[in-house]
Computed example of a mutant assay.
Amino acid sequence: MEGMDMDVEESEPSFNSKHLKRFGLKNTIQTNFGEDYVFQIVPKDDLTSMAVSLSTNAVKLYSPETGQYFGELKGHSSTINEISFSGSTTPNVLHSCSSDGTIRAWDTRSFHQVSSVSAGPSQEIFSFSVGGSGDNLLAAGSKSQIFFWDWRTKKQIACLEESHMDDVTQVQFVPDHQNKLLSASVDGLMCIFDTRGSINDDDHLESVINVGTSIGKVGFFGGASQKLWCLTHIETLSVWDWKDARIEVNFEDARTLASDSWALDHVDYFVDCHYSGQDDRLWVIGGTSAGTLGYFPVDYKGKGSIGSPEAVLHGGHTGIVRSVLPLSGMRGGPTRTLGGVFGWTGGEDGRLCCWMPDESSDANRSWISSKLVMKSPKTRRKSRHHPY
Rank of each mutant, 00 (worst) to 15 (best):
F70K: 13
E82H: 09
Y37W: 13
P43V: 06
L73D: 07
K74M: 12
L73E: 09
Y62K: 00
T56S: 15
M50T: 03
D45N: 12
Q40F: 02
D36S: 14
T31K: 11
G87R: 09
S86R: 12
T89P: 00
T79N: 10
Q30K: 15
I83H: 08
S88C: 01
I83F: 11
I83Q: 11
V52Y: 09
K60M: 13
N81M: 10
S77T: 08
T66A: 03
S53P: 13
K74D: 05
S88T: 03
L73N: 05
I41G: 09
N92G: 01
N32S: 15
G75S: 04
S55L: 10
V52A: 02
V59N: 08
N27F: 15
G34C: 03
T90L: 10
T79Q: 08
E65L: 11
I80V: 12
L47V: 08
T90I: 02
S78T: 04
N32A: 13
F85I: 08
P91V: 00
L54H: 15
S88P: 04
V93C: 03
L47G: 05
S78W: 07
P91T: 07
L25W: 03
G87E: 00
N81H: 10
T28S: 06
K44H: 01
D45S: 11
V38M: 03
I80S: 01
I80W: 01
T89Y: 04
Q30P: 12
A51L: 07
V38C: 08
Q68W: 02
P91I: 01
I83S: 09
F70Y: 15
S78K: 11
P91M: 00
N81L: 04
K26I: 06
K44A: 13
S78Q: 15
L54D: 12
D45V: 11
E82S: 02
S86L: 00
F70L: 03
S84K: 11
E72P: 04
T89S: 13
Q40D: 10
K60R: 08
M50R: 05
V42E: 12
S55V: 12
G67C: 02
D45W: 07
M50G: 04
V93D: 00
Q68R: 09
Y37H: 09
S77R: 05
L25G: 06
F70T: 03
P91H: 02
G87H: 03
V38K: 14
G75E: 10
F33Y: 14
G75M: 09
I29S: 11
V59I: 14
G87Q: 01
E65V: 05
V38F: 04
F85L: 13
H76F: 08
F85C: 12
V42S: 05
T28F: 02
G67Y: 14
I83A: 15
V59T: 14
I29V: 11
T90N: 09
L61K: 00
T66R: 02
S78L: 07
L25R: 00
K26H: 05
L61T: 01
V38R: 14
S77V: 04
T79D: 07
G34M: 12
E65R: 04
P43K: 14
S53M: 07
